Simulated assay, not measured.
Amino acid sequence: MDRRRRAVESAVPAAVMVLLLLSIAPAGAARRDWGFRSPSSSVGFTEPNTKPDVKNNGQTFVFNYTLAKAIVEYASAVYMTDLTALYAWTCSRCNDLTRGFEVTCIIVDVQNCLQAFVGVDHKLNAIIVAIRGTQENSIQNWIKDMIWKQVNLNYPNVPNAKVHTGFYSSYNNTLLRPAITNAVHKARKLHGARDIIVTGHSMGGAIASFCALDLAIRFGSNNVHLMTFGQPRVGNAAFASYFAKYVPNTIRMTHERDIVPHLPPYFFFLPQLTYRHFPREVWEHEVDGNRTFQVCDGSGEDPNCCRSVFVLFWSASDHLTYMGVKIEADDWSTCRIVLGRSAEQLQMNLASNIVTSGRSVDVVIAGNSVQVD
């Protein structure tokens, strides 16, 4: 594990980071350890002991520590490659606050190495959608590549809105979109019109953003909530405004010096032409030895939250743990979803196991991606 983390850290050499100095707003506030700026108007609080609650309060998804801890466990579990343990919810990450979760659909796009599941959390009275991003052979190359990505795709029917082509296509032009929407429709038909919580980590968080927007338009903004962990930016300011309008119940968790939320870069002197986060960020970091969850302002780019970390202190290792939960692939070497078997063999084996178990779980697996216009 230590060797893996050192390899990940090497993805961000200081020489490359110097090129990103212009993406940081001018200094002005005092700095804490690791280059943190002192919080000012943002609200900060240490770990509260509150009951899970998915109900929105007006236009704000109220941050709830216990709820967030449950959601990060779902975002971690979707990385598991043992699909049999995943559908039975017996995997090593399928416990603690998510115990008793009922998986209703597992979705695998083998060609694009994408994986997701849909299910019902009866304790939260909510439908959960968890998405895993593409598992790259080299996370170092992925991070370096993200530095230079441009907002290069016009978002349909939204003037001036541009988004990252790869993130947009990973949801809208693959198996994920039709499979997830069908699974959510079915779950709401069987279990009632429950709220929908969408989550993902890293690239999975970026893809989850487009999923949440799609579901909010289909099922209504008040019924869809998004909570991501360490997600990169996905679009420009016009898209961020559009997103905030339709998915107001959004929390973007960031952790300490995690590099990924800083990518692709935000250039403060080109606010309309560059990538921009949508609100609302909650920054997990230490203040005077206490783990603090700082609720940031509504701009999406609060300079007193994770953006206050100086560029040379950005860290890839902080990307792999959120709220004390390891949130990484259980095999980094390659895309191991099918474990050497064909998609057809995998689907047949899983179907047989599901029938034997007596559970009702849909398995949607495709060797080739499904193109959606």
Results as ranks from 00 to 15, higher is better:
Pro264Tyr: 06
Arg336His: 10
Tyr322Phe: 15
Ser241Gln: 12
Ala11Trp: 12
Arg99Glu: 13
Trp89Val: 06
Ala130Asp: 02
Phe268Val: 07
Ala240Ser: 15
Pro279Tyr: 07
His285Lys: 11
Phe268Lys: 01
Gly44Gln: 07
Gly289Gln: 11
Asp302Arg: 06
Asn222Gly: 02
Asn152Pro: 05
Ala238Thr: 09
Tyr322Trp: 08
Arg252Ser: 07
Glu9Phe: 02
Tyr65Ala: 13
Thr84Phe: 01
Gly119Ser: 08
Ile139Met: 12
Glu73Asp: 10
Thr199Ser: 07
Phe63Ser: 06
Tyr74Met: 07
Ile196Pro: 03
Val355Asn: 13
Thr134Tyr: 13
Ala77Tyr: 05
Thr98Lys: 02
Leu226Thr: 04
Ile207Pro: 08
Gly324Met: 11
Glu281Gly: 07
Ser23Gly: 14
Gln231Met: 15
Tyr87Lys: 00
Val184Gly: 08
Asp258His: 13
Val118Leu: 08
Gly119Lys: 03
Gly298Ser: 08
Phe243Lys: 00
Ser241Met: 04
Gly298Phe: 03
Glu73Lys: 11
Arg218His: 12
Ala183His: 07
Leu67Val: 00
Gly119His: 05
Ile147Val: 15
Pro39Leu: 01
Thr66His: 08
Cys91Leu: 00
Arg188Trp: 06
Tyr74Ala: 08
Gln347Trp: 03
Gly289Asp: 09
Leu339Pro: 01
Tyr171Phe: 15
Val234Cys: 10
Asn56Tyr: 08
Asp121Ile: 02
Val103Arg: 07
Ser308Glu: 04
Phe267Gln: 02
Arg257Asp: 05
Ala238Arg: 08
Leu312Asn: 05
Lys189Thr: 10
Arg177Leu: 11
Ala161Ser: 11
Ser342Asn: 11
Phe63Thr: 03
Leu114Pro: 02
Asn95Lys: 11
Ile365Arg: 11
Leu97Asn: 14
Val338Asp: 14
Leu67Gln: 00
Glu328Ile: 12
Val62Leu: 10
Leu215Val: 04
Asn160Ser: 14
Pro271Met: 05
Val311Thr: 12
Gly28His: 05
Cys335Lys: 07
Thr134Lys: 10
Val224Met: 06
Arg307Trp: 05
Gln59Asn: 15
Asn49Met: 01
Leu114Gln: 09
Ala329Ser: 14
Glu284Trp: 09
Glu328Thr: 14
Arg177Glu: 09
Ile197Cys: 11
Ala27Pro: 00
Leu83Tyr: 10
Phe36Asp: 14
Ile107Asp: 03
Cys211Pro: 04
Ala238Val: 06
Glu73Tyr: 01
Val282Asp: 02
Arg291Pro: 10
Val311Lys: 11
